[in-house]
Design a protein around this nucleic acid. Structure first.
Length: 725
DNA sequence: AGCACGCCGACT
DNA sequence: GTCGGCGTGCTC
């Protein structure tokens, strides 16, 4: 009797046995099946076939329908899912569900989505040369654009502002033709000349083709990491293999994308969250067929199927967006390294400010270190100055010296950037008469004032209410704003420099689809202006005319209760500093601080990230914290704090004594105890090696599962957590 | 996670 | 008298 072992997308840490659908006598692992589950129908994945089952035959149900004729998930991805399920202690069914593109999670049968690729015909080339399109301006633009690209898919054309009617018109005129991606010629555009450091990096990576080897490519801003990626990919593609490039969530800027597309015409697939499900599926399948050479994508792209994977690149590898922060809490960076090992290929982790994890791996000789210290075009590193603001009169967070410096910068016809990692007008609304503060009804935090919207908003849940005119308690007109946010800074700066454009960049001003790129292009028109923004400013985008950066609240990171606070602060500072000054214009970074003698700032002042990181690493070693130890967090969430605490106490007790340097921390209540009306506690597990951590987690799981908390209590496991709460 | 089953308060 | 609140238990 044929029995299917099936992974069902539900939070249960096991698979389920089913009889095959009627008429089906064979199924392969990796195929999707539609199964009855409880009283629902779910798309599940076949893990394997067997002849017998422990399950009572009366309970056994037949599957409804086999949805694939070919396995959707190949052996490699299936094995990766099993590995990830064990590593992250997450149910296999949910892991597999995350691997599938959204389209394939639904019960429609899979159909290969072949997206046509367009290229110029001879007639088109002549038409372009003779400028014969006349009034059809958009069509002429398309033709011109395509002539530089060799070929492009419909979605690529759409991304570049060309619509289907224009494509159709040109096809009808015979100026362009459609074809399969596979039939498109693999061409590679000429690369730039490399400096010796870049050359060495590319050669090292290329020399390890076909072998598993991680590289940490550490290069200061402007040192040309991308060119190294491109040429390493070129080697890979020339051997007929595919490359995967992972970028942080906001790192997929149009500039970056264009650079890849220009180099590998018609060979790049893009996978990111903004894509429509259909487009996503088509690029996913295209990669699986081997019809593209390069896949660029954010976190989930690490699960893209490949025909022949030859290289993985993880850009800005320190970026926290690689770690999924809910549900299946995987790290795309770590999974990418595992995938490279499975596929016997090199993997490059690139960053100007590497994570301590990766630097530790270099020290352990697991990763090879490639350094790029030279800045392209001989640009000078910025000068970093500390501004002691103790006892200084601040104007909404800005020190007088900062304002002076901004004025001087504008006077020189240059641009200034003011960085504050706090959006909104003010983080606190308080009554000067009775002391009332605007607090969230659902979380233990104060609400942020959003002046433009005349609202109080909670930054931890989606609560908001109208901004009161008088104190809700004592009805006096004595409400005051405590502390600045980016919105307030914008106002202050507009007041101080009335003739200068102030551009604010944060989540509130970049909400629209193209808002961000519009703001960026306004800045890069080159007129003197002041940029105000949150950490969105620190990533991805280049502002070549910014010569002054002012950082307002670095202290928060330095004294953060989170053990990664200092690492984050240092990375942020280095990245933001990298925004200042290019080529011929040296930059200045002003750091406002109450702790000018802080040793971490002192180390960073030398304008070198490496000694700073080494110092932190030594500290982590001494304290037995990651990456010098291995951690996991069990979090509990319920309507009452006591319930969480009691549950985690019980888990800790039933897990037993860890010993040998392995230990528990907690249960500890989260610093923001109540969030969206839920109370949260963490139990932290610290182990001396990976194996012990997993042994500990297995025991904890066995302890937690039968506890049946009884209340509406939810608990989760987070392996290699970025935060303890 | 869903979804059903089951046992106690304010409504036509 | 019932509609519906969410506590608890199950899913091959």
């Amino acid at each position: 009797m044929l029995i299917l072992d099936v992974a069902v997308p539900c939070p249960l840490r096991r698979s389920f046995d089913y009889l095959p659908p009627s008429g089906i006598t064979a199924a392969e692992p990796g195929m999707r099946v539609l199964v009855p589950f409880g009283n629902r129908r779910l798309v599940a994945v076949v893990l394997g076939c067997k002849n017998e089952t422990q399950v009572d035959h009366a309970k056994l149900k037949p599957a409804i329908e086999l949805l694939d004729t070919q396995p959707t998930l190949g052996k490699d991805l299936l094995a990766l899912a099993q590995w990830a399920s064990n590593y992250y202690h997450h149910p296999i069914g949910e892991v597999l569900q995350q691997m599938l593109p959204v389209r394939l999670r639904k019960e429609k049968p899979a159909r290969d989505q072949m997206e046509p690729h367009y290229r110029l015909t001879e007639a088109g080339r002549e038409a372009l040369a003779s400028d014969s399109l006349g009034r059809a301006r958009k069509q002429a633009e398309l033709l011109d654009w395509l002539s530089h690209q060799q070929a492009a898919s419909r979605s690529t054309l759409k991304q570049n502002g060309f619509d289907y009617p224009q494509i159709k018109a040109l096809v009808d005129k015979g100026f362009i033709e459609a074809g399969d991606a596979a039939a498109m010629p693999v061409t590679i555009a000429e690369g730039k000349t490399l400096n010796p450091e870049q050359q060495h990096a590319v050669e090292s990576i290329a020399a390890h083709a076909g072998k598993f080897q991680p590289f940490l490519l550490q290069g200061v801003t402007g040192s040309g990491k991308t060119e190294v990626y491109l040429q390493a990919i070129e080697h890979c593609v020339k051997q007929g293999k595919q490359a995967l490039v992972l970028v942080p969530e906001i790192g997929l800027t149009p500039q970056t994308l264009r650079r890849f597309e220009a180099r590998f015409p018609a060979q790049v697939s893009v996978l990111h969250s903004g894509l429509a499900d259909g487009e996503r599926l088509s690029d996913w399948q295209r990669a699986g067929r081997g019809d593209c050479s390069v896949v660029i994508g954010t976190r989930s792209a690490v699960f893209t199927p490949f025909n022949s994977l030859g290289l993985i690149i993880i850009d800005e590898e320190h970026d926290p967006s690689y770690k999924q922060q809910d549900g299946f809490r995987y790290s795309a960076r770590d999974i990418a390294v595992k995938r490279a090992a499975d596929h016997h290929c090199p993997v490059v982790l690139g960053s100007a400010t590497p994570s301590l994890e990766s630097l530790h791996n270099v020290q352990q000789n697991k990763y090879r270190h490639l350094l790029l210290n030279e800045r392209a075009g001989g640009a000078q590193p910025p000068t970093i100055k500390l501004l002691d603001i103790r006892n200084s009169e601040l104007n909404n967070g800005l020190a007088p010296d900062s304002l002076t410096a901004i004025g001087e910068t504008l006077g020189k016809g240059e641009q200034a950037l003011v960085f504050l990692n706090r959006r909104g007008f003010s983080p606190l609304l308080q009554c000067h008469t009775c002391g009332w503060v605007g607090q969230c009804d659902h979380c233990d935090v104060s609400m942020t004032v959003h002046f433009g919207r005349r609202q109080l908003r909670c930054h931890h849940c989606d609560a908001y209410k109208p901004l009161p005119d008088v104190c809700p308690d004592c009805e006096n007109h004595s409400l005051t704003f405590k502390g600045p946010g980016t919105e307030r800074l914008e106002q202050t700066l507009k007041g101080a420099f009335p003739d200068t454009q102030v551009i604010r960049i944060d989540r509130d001003t970049t909400g629209g689809k193209s808002a961000m790129s519009e703001l960026v292009s306004t800045v890069n028109e080159g007129k003197p202006c002041i940029l105000v923004g949150t950490q969105m400013l620190a990533k991805g985008h280049h502002f070549p005319l910014v010569t002054l950066v002012v950082m307002l609240d670095i202290d928060g990171g330095l004294f953060s209760p989170d053990f990664r606070g200092a690492e984050r602060a240092g990375q942020l500072l280095t990245q933001v500093a990298g925004r200042a000054g290019r080529a011929e214009r040296p930059g200045t970074v002003l750091i406002q601080t109450h702790a000018p003698d802080h040793p971490i700032l002192a180390t960073l002042l030398k304008q070198d990230y490496s000694p700073f990181a080494e110092r932190l690493l030594a500290e982590r070693k001494q304290l037995g914290l990651p990456p010098c130890s291995f951690t996991a967090v069990i979090r509990a969430e319920a309507n009452a704090l006591e319930a969480c605490d009691r549950f985690l106490q019980a888990v800790r007790r039933d897990t037993g004594m860890p010993g040998n340097g392995n230990q528990f921390l907690g249960p500890l209540p989260a610093p923001i105890t109540r969030k969206a009306n839920r109370y949260r506690c963490s139990l932290i597990l610290i182990a001396q090696d990976r194996k012990q951590l997993h042994a500990l987690l297995n025991r904890a799981r066995r302890a937690a599962e039968p506890l049946k908390p009884g209340f509406a209590l939810r608990w989760t496991i987070d392996v290699d957590p970025l935060e303890w709460f």
